[in-house]
Design a protein around this nucleic acid. Structure first.
Lengths: 200, 200
DNA sequence: GAAGCGATATGACAGCTGTCATGTGCGACA
DNA sequence: TGTCGCACATGACAGCTGTCATATCGCTTC
């Protein structure tokens, strides 16, 4: 019997996944959490074989949860189930040590199958994504990413400078580097491109 | 017996909803569609009492589907099930003539209950949203909305002018109006604010 | 018909943005 | 130790953006 836990903040999807798992005879649901911290607590309590989780959750993301499993040397393996099909997300997920990455777009039959494979120690990646796993490197530095996020929120160079303690000219310089690396025409387009790739 | 159809492009959620509906004894599933056009075809074929649908779908949105039901004078009623909790979305949905608007955040028990109420002719709105239904009017004109969307994508005034056939000065003027109406400091912030409200 | 109003349209001007040249300091590495 | 690369920093300049004054047109209201 494979012991599974669900961590998903959308109640409807969480309970629907519960219903789907309930249809399988060789998989047992041992808990369901609505946020990352509750998930961590329940994992320590039940020590499931596999945790189905979204990436974005209140409290703790699915990726942080995966990193935590590694740090605490648990055998519990993380299977990400998400809508985000951006290359950067998959890359970051794999680097966090997740055992699988499924898209919510995929057929539900893939879910139980993926749980079985992950429980057996295999690594599972949505076929739609497998080819783009190592597609393109994030060329942005931490500084560029941070300033790009502020620019995306609508702050002008002066406000970003104040926020970060940099000079206005320096802010423009970093944004110029980001714009140039991404092949964009301005900071707005640069932010959009970076977000599409999953780099923000 | 209430006859229900599901229109949802995420396969996993679609099949999970199917599983949830399957648990109810007084509700019967008569079809499931992965996009708006397929949904329309299946509605004409099966004439369900209620259609569960997301707003954003390939082919046709759930709101367009609702408007179509009204135009074709069908008795089929649309129940929106979505993640979008922005005020503007609910307002536009109600104006499109939907019979209900549920958040995926809500408990799954609310789903069957909502289906029953909608089938009985009632109107159902997620309690989290009810208070903000008429919270704030969209102050933007169609022209302003369109230009704001182009600006959000990273086009500069010149590119937007070319795209729309307007003069550069006119483009800046419309964006200025939008910025001013929204109390923003620049076009980026204006686009962000408008999107948060659900006006884009 | 005249006044009022909103949508459309344009140009002038100050300030902001993107680009580039240039410079400093720090750690890596042969 | 030198120099190489990289992050950090700044100023100059052309072009773009935000703001405002202004004007036309169609429609409503009296």
């Amino acid at each position: 019997m494979i012991r599974v836990m669900i961590a998903e903040d959308q109640a409807l999807l969480r309970e629907a996944l519960t219903a789907l798992i309930g249809l399988e005879t060789d998989i047992e649901l041992v808990g369901a959490a609505a946020d990352g911290e509750e998930a961590h607590r329940l994992i320590r309590q039940h020590e499931p074989d596999v945790v189905l989780t979204d990436i974005e959750m209140p409290g703790m993301t699915g990726l942080e949860l995966a990193a935590l499993m590694k740090r605490e040397q648990r055998k519990t393996r993380i299977l990400i189930v998400t809508t985000f099909d951006r290359p950067g997300y998959l890359r970051r997920a794999l680097e966090s040590g997740v055992a699988g990455y499924l898209l919510k777009d995929g057929p539900s039959t893939a879910l139980a199958e993926a749980v079985r494979k992950v429980a057996a120690g295999e690594r599972v990646i949505s076929p739609e994504l497998a080819h783009q796993a190592w597609s393109e490197d994030d060329p942005l530095s931490d500084r560029e990413r941070k300033l790009l996020r502020l620019a995306e929120a609508g702050l002008d160079s002066g406000a970003i400078a104040e926020e970060t303690g940099l000079a206005r000219g320096t802010v423009r310089n970093y944004l110029h580097a980001a714009i140039s690396k991404l092949g964009a025409g301005n900071r707005i387009e640069a932010a959009r491109l970076a977000r599409e790739k999953g780099w923000l």
